[in-house]
Amino acid sequence: MPNDKVTFGFWVYLMSDCVLFAGLFATYAVLQGATFGAPSVQDFVSLPFVLVETLLLLTSSFMAGLALLAARHHKKVLALGALALTLLLGLTFLGMELHEFGRLIAEGSGPSTSASLSAFFVLVGTHGLHVALGSLWMLVIMLHVALRGLSEGTLRKLACFGLFWHFLDIIWIFIFTFVYLFGALAL
C-alpha cells in the first residue's frame, strides 16, 4: 500500500517533527558556547559510551524493519520476536541516556546551570522523549498483533511505527555527530 492515505498523513507528521528538531539543533548550535563557566559537552563526553548508544539504536532500527518484513510475510511469532528485540534495544538506549542525565544532574551540571546545558538537555531530552513514547506505542502494537493477529490495520500501524523508529535513528545520527563528535573535537 505505497499510496495509503494514513501512511502519507503519518509522513506529514514526521516531516513537521523534523522541523521541530531543526529548531532545537539551531538553538543548540547557537548556545553551545554559552557555558557560563560550567562544564560543557566537551568536558563530560565519553565517546565509547555514546558509540554504544548509537549502535543500540541503529540495531533497534534494523530490527523494526525486520519486524515489518516478517509481518508482511504473515510470520506472526517472528514479527513479535523482532519487535520484542526492538523494544529491548530501545529501552537499553533509553536507560543509558537517563543514566547520563542522572550523572550530569548529580554532578551539578543540570539543565539550569548554563544556556549550553539547557540547549543540550532540551535537544537530547526531546529525542529521548520520542524514544520513550515510541516504546509505549510499540508495546500497544505488540498487544494488537498478539491479540488480533496480522490484519490489514495492524500491518498499517506497524508500517507507520517503522517509519517513526527509522526517523528517530536518523535524528540520533545528527545528535551523535553534531553534539557528541563535534563536542569531542572541542569546536
Binding site: V19, G23, A29, V30
Partner: peptide, 11 residues
C-alpha cells in the same frame, strides 16, 4: 528547504 532556512538562517 524549511530546515535549511531555519538552521542556516539562525546561524
Amino acid at each position: 528547504i524549511i530546515v535549511a532556512i531555519l538552521v542556516g538562517g539562525t546561524l
